[in-house]
């Protein structure tokens, strides 16, 4: 048995995760958080108009930002798991499909993907036939298939904006997440698989009962990091008229022309949210003994 392997997946586009030694009041994290909260409080007290008005205008945007982020990360986790398993699959076809998905998605900017799924595919879907007509033309088919096809056509035809936005974000981050899962799974020592297989586990049981539960420890921190990155990138959906934090800020500024004030508040609120989340991720790391070294 070789020495315990040190594995660390570094995904750098999330917020900086505080290191363990950065404790105490004078860490960069505390300075940023107290600074940001202090700025918000000071501005709202010293100049309630417009700062307090802006703060009151934004909360539903913050909710939408979280809604988009959480739904997208759930979709991304699902796609990521499938992709990660596909990438290490010995089946050549599955492997190729998963790898191609990652290549294609990673090669297209997220903003372009958003436009593509929302406006380009939206136009294609809106030209689909009416669900009722589809049901009629498929009268000869078995009931269950008709039901599924009509359901899918109806859903695609009237895809709500939020779903389109979440789909775009989820598909994009699913590719990144696939890499995280792949690296996480590959980080588990081969001996684990060999041991499980020789104990009579089949390949699926080995993956889901032995490998993945251990891989979680390596996977979770980068997933948390991706979550933060996704939350920041979710500001891109404001281009699709989804009323998130940035869009609400822009709406306020477009009426009052207080661009400085509105975007200052939007920036500070994003900062506070990501700072708190990054602390959460680092706490999770600590709990998972991520950095424990013997």
């Amino acid at each position: 048995m070789p020495d315990k392997q040190e594995v660390r997946i570094d995904v750098s586009d999330g917020a900086a995760i505080p290191r363990k030694r950065d404790i105490g009041l004078f860490s960069a994290w505390w300075i940023s958080l107290i600074g940001a909260l202090g700025c918000i409080a000071y501005l709202c007290l010293a100049k309630p108009e417009p700062y307090l008005d802006i703060l009151k205008f934004l909360p539903d945007g913050i909710l939408v930002t979280f809604e988009v982020t959480i739904l997208s990360i759930l979709l991304a986790l699902f796609l990521g798991l499938i992709t990660g398993l596909g990438r290490i699959s010995k089946n050549r076809t599955i492997n190729l499909i998963a790898s191609t998905y990652v290549e294609v998605v990673r090669g297209i900017p997220l903003l372009v993907q958003l436009f593509y799924i929302y406006f380009a595919l939206g136009q294609v879907f809106s030209n689909l036939p009416n669900p009722a007509d589809v049901a009629e033309s498929m009268a000869a088919w078995p009931g269950i298939i008709v039901y599924v096809v009509v359901g899918v056509v109806g859903f695609l035809k009237d895809m709500p904006p939020l779903v389109a936005a979440v789909t775009a974000m989820g598909v994009c981050y699913g590719a990144y997440m696939g890499e995280v899962f792949r690296a996480g799974i590959e980080s588990i020592d081969k001996g684990q698989t060999e041991a499980a297989r020789s104990l009579g586990f089949n390949r699926r049981q080995t993956m889901f009962l032995v490998i993945l539960p251990q891989a979680w420890r390596t996977i979770l921190p980068p997933v948390g990091n991706e979550f933060i990155a996704l939350l920041k990138d979710s500001s891109l959906v404001s281009i699709l008229a989804v009323a998130d934090l940035l869009r609400r800020g822009r709406e306020f500024a477009s009426v009052t022309f207080s661009y400085f004030e509105a975007y200052t508040m939007v920036a500070l609120i994003y900062l506070v949210i990501t700072l708190i989340l990054s602390k959460g991720v680092s706490a999770m790391e600590t709990r998972l003994n991520y950095y424990v070294r013997d």
Binding site: F119, S126, A241, R247, E251, S254
Partner: peptide, 15 residues
Amino acid sequence: KSYDEVGLAIADLAN
């Protein structure tokens, strides 16, 4: 719903 351009709003209406 506020769009960056009226053309995008019209596209969403058509879709």
